[in-house]
Each structure stands twice: as structure tokens, then as C-alpha cells.
Amino acid sequence: MALSSFEREQQRREQRRLMALLAPGMFWLLVFFLLPLLVILVYSFLTNGPRGNLVWQPTLQNYVDLFTQASYVNAYVRSLWISVLTTLFALLLGYPLALFIVKQPPRARLVLLILVLIPFWTNFLVRIYAWQIILANNGLINTTLGTLGLPTLFLLNTEGATLLGLVYGELPFMVLPIYAALDRFDFTLMEAGADLGASKWRAFWHIMLPMTMPGVAAGAVLVFIPTVGQFVVSELLGGAKVDYIGNLIQRLFLRSNPPNWPLGSAMSTVMMVVLLGFILLYFRSTTEEDR
């Protein structure tokens, strides 16, 4: 395979250019993203000293604890379960909203879309905090109930409040990809379906939903993953009454006295492995669809 020397020189130049583009960013990601993940992996096999110091003695105890102690296992189950619920509610609320937006004339569509986009750009913490004002025992709802002479409710610091906050926080992430999928959807297909005698509901079920499934899947991934790792919502709205993985990890690293980094690292590693499994599943399903 004879390349002329000039061509080879060109290839070398191309290589140099590529390296110049690739090197700085990749360096940063390798050193400040991948390497730290590796550090966590190593930590998860180390022993925690009595004062929370690291003891360089390899052990599997952290993983054993993780899978045998009920409080840890429960935290995983609880996190996954609330993430499933959040994803489901976000989908049920988000799909019709995306559909509504898509069917508006272009100008209105743009405005409505930006309105969905804005919460995405604003501080998550602040938006969750806003619910405290509404749900607190002396908050907006209960004050209103009180002035109406009705009995007050215990709303804040419940798991229901956590779920509400999560759905509220993640809803935009569900709407945007579904909107993108619906935007590409050819609505004349619905007419064709109606023409062939399908009811609107059946046309939705058999035509629109399957064809916008990639958007639904993308939305589900975008909602599910951060929810599994959350700790702010369950702390601010759930009152930290029950533990989710995020709360445990945060506590083990920052709050406990003494801290237990090896166990926290193991928890974080297991969570990542589980979620990467989901992500791989997602990518497999989407690439197959493309084929």
C-alpha cells in the first residue's frame, strides 16, 4: 500500500492537528474525571480507620456490608423505586404537555418551549426550596386551610413531598426529548390511521407512541439517573426521615463522625455500575432501532 511521501506527510500533519485539538480537553477529563473515579474504586476496597482515616489494607468488607445490611439495601431499593415512580409520573405529565406544545402554531410553540426550558436553567435547589414555603406546617397551603377553617395537613417532610419535588424538578428533562421526537413525527400518519378506521386513542397507541419512543426513552434516562443519586430533595422536602443512596453517600463522606470514605466509595461505585448498566441497555435499544 504505497502512499506517496507527500501523502504521508499530510497524514502526519493531520495527526498533529488532531492531537492539538484532543489533548487539552482529554487531559482534563482523564485527570479530573476518570482518574478520580478510579481513586473511588480503589478506596472502596480499603479499610476505614477508627478516626475515619484511610488504612491501606485491602478488604471486601465494604461491599459485604453494602449487600447484607438491611439499612443499606433498603436505601438502594428505595432510591430505585422512587426513581421509577418519578420517571413514570414525569412521563405521564410530560408527554401530553409536549404534545400540546408541538401542536401550537410556530410562534406560540417557541414561547411555550422556552417556558419549559427556563426551569432547566434555574437553580434546582432554589426551586425545591420554593416548595418548602408551600408545604410547610405554617406554609401557604396550611395557612389557607386554616383561614378557611379546615384542619391543617402534615405535608412537608413526607415521602410524598419528596416524590412531588423530584417530579417537579425533573419534568423539563422529560418534556424536551419527547417534544423533539414529536416535532419529527409526521402527524399526517394520524390522519392516515383515522382514515383506516383507527380511533384517536388507538392511533395514538399504535402509531404515535411507538414512533416517539426514542424521545420517551431519552427522557426516561435523563430523569431516572439523577434521581437515583439525589439527596437534596429528600433532605429538604422529605425531612431526611428515610435514607436514599445519595443521603448515605453524602453522610459517609461529609457528616458522619468519623467519616467512612471507603464505605461511601463502595456505595458510589455500586450505584454507578447499576446506572451504567441502565445506560448501556438504553444505548443498545436505541442503536438497534436505528438499524
Binding site: L29, P36, P226, Q230, S265, S268, M272, L275
Partner: peptide, 18 residues
């Protein structure tokens, strides 16, 4: 893509440890 899809807390604790 990884930093976008993994939960932020995983990245935070790994950076802390690192």
C-alpha cells in the same frame, strides 16, 4: 458523555477523594 450521564454526587465524591 459520561460526566453528563452519571449522577453528580458520584462525580463529587470522586473529586473529593481525588
Amino acid at each position: 458523555y459520561l460526566p453528563v450521564v452519571i449522577p453528580e454526587i458520584a462525580m463529587a465524591v470522586s473529586l473529593l477523594a481525588f
